[in-house]
Design a protein around this nucleic acid. Sequence first.
DNA 1: CCTGGCATCATTTTT
DNA 2: TGATGCCAGG
Length: 718
Amino acid sequence: MDDGLNAEQRSAVNTLAGPLLVLAGAGTGKTRVVTVRIAKLIRQGIQPDRILAVTFTNKAAAEMKERVGAQLGKRLKSMPVVSTFHSHCVRVLRCHIRKLGYPEKFAIYDRGDQESLARGVLREIRVPGEMLKPSDLLFHIGNWKTKCIRPQDAEAVAETDKEHLAAIAYRRYQAKLKTLGAVDFDDLLLLTEQLFTESQEALREEANRFDHLLIDEYQDTNGSQYRIVKALASGHRNLCVVGDDDQSIYGWRGAEVQHILRFARDWPDATVVRLEQNYRSTAEILEMSNRLIAFNKTRHPKVLKPSRSGGPKPRVEQFKTETEEAEGVVADIQRLLLSPDWEPRDFAILFRTNEQPRAFETELRKVKLPYVLIGGMSFFDRREVRDLLAYLKLLASPDDEVAARRIINTPPRGIGNKTIEQLTSAAVQEGISLWEVMHRPGPMQALAPVARQAVTSFCELIKSFRARVEGGESLVDITRSLLTAIKYEDDLTRTCADENETQARWAAVEEVVNALGAYESKARKPDLRKFIDDVALGDSEFDNEKDKQLKKNAIALMTMHSAKGLEFPHVYVVGLEEGLLPHHRSVEADGDAIDEERRLCYVGVTRAEERLTLTMALTRMKWGKPRETIPSRFLFELIGQADNPHARSAAHAAPARPAQGRRKTGRATSTTRTSPPKKTAAKKAAPKKNVAKKSTSTRPASQRPAGTPPPRKGQRKP
DNA sequence: CCTGGCATCATTTTT
DNA sequence: TGATGCCAGG
């Protein structure tokens, strides 16, 4: 049954017991190995539902489920549990969170909710916006949470004024979450971890639920996840982790490559299997990729070996502006699409930041090529979607203050800021929720009669619909009638500039209703809260939509982050410029930030199966102003001076470069390049490169001005 | 209380 | 450039 597996893959599949680390390079058939392995476990008599596979994204989970299903046929009574960390933690917490003093029906706050909450907290403690913005606060809280620093300890570690302020706000934020019976994304992990340390009973119960634990994308686990994994696996020790340290791109979210790097130390009897045979990309693409990633200092050494030969050479293209970059790329795609070999879905344009796709979108629209913009959590950020979800949340959990605030006066029903202010301060004083305070005679009497009336009827509205939910009526019906009751469509008509916008927004509302309908018809026992959880965790019907989008025959536009795990015949990695691909935040940060950017770039280029195009713009609009750019250092690393005369000449020219500072980029690290690699040269003139091996090992020291800040640690191991 | 206009502000990646 | 916040007028 493991026919067609190579030796490496086979050994990964056959090590069924004990700790196993699979170091799977890009395009080495990792998913296949994992699914075959799971299937094999089941064939050996392991109960499917005693296997827990944890993936990083919902998409990956869905895919894995599908493939395991395909391997085994549908006649299984149960299926392996495939879940993301976050979803699994929700499941665990729903059972045990009482032990931590939270209500069983806790609400999950997404980013938008967090922001509202943060805003409220800052208002309450009267911190003016210029001293600490909600996003700043969340940034700090996020940092602390990923480092497991509790609110009460944050002040001790705070250094700057902002941090001290944030520490105070953090206490309040966390306390508030708790009284509201809500948890944020980080809490899901943090609380699970806490649960496991505080309750042996809960830990035992959860750990005993499975005999085999499998973690995909292990390089992206953060501290909490790492400890949760350890806790769950230390009993049976049947832990299989799969990942590629070279593709660790979530350090900013607390992921630590160290976890995968030291797996063998954590589990001394671990088997380590390397998958290096790449089935995805042409030899030349791989050569570039290998050469690039070799500049990173800390990694499990591995070199991807090609199985494909031939194919067009990877190209580097340089344009004057980002508009021309978009035009150039799109024109190239258009040209290729003339051939019957390719269709739109074979193309992907990968970028670093979310402002980049704009130019490509307009261009693609202009020439009427179908495209999909993946990611960009735009859908849930849309006003109308958030509004409707807030109503649903309020129906599901009465104390959801953030939701309440959002829709208490949407559409306008005569509850203005002043009223809300009064109610809030009363709630703070009495230490109760906004919802509760609306039922206290005292604070209510203090309101102006008109406002009081408005508040009362709002409460009635919510209560009546909540009763219908509890009565078990169809959620879709309830939602439809709710939308009618609040005259939401009228409100949209009123507030939108034109009819198109109204329609678009209403369509989004309908989409939510449809998703609810889909959920309702699929779920055995539909539960509004579960639906809302799924939406918050990105595990909803919407994602199926997104997946369908990907399957739509369209050119894919996405960030390199969201491209992980995907592959396309034609890949355009765009915006290879200093400050953009090594993002300036990473350039300024010290430590391993640049290495992560390099990994990101590596992820980008290794998506390409057939043909890779790297592009950059010589000037790029920033904040409405055109700004000169500098070619990304990765460009030089990718090309490899040994292979390309222009890259070589660039390297030779380098000694001149330390005479820098003429271009006022303000950063000492900037290399004052005057002649970036010429596209034609890179494209055509590249001589046959049988010298790749040599070129990987030596990055001329001269290429980077000596002694410039980001110390080149890029010495690769022998 | 609501709205629209003006100013200001900040620019990464996402479960 | 675009998103958001604040203020003044309705």
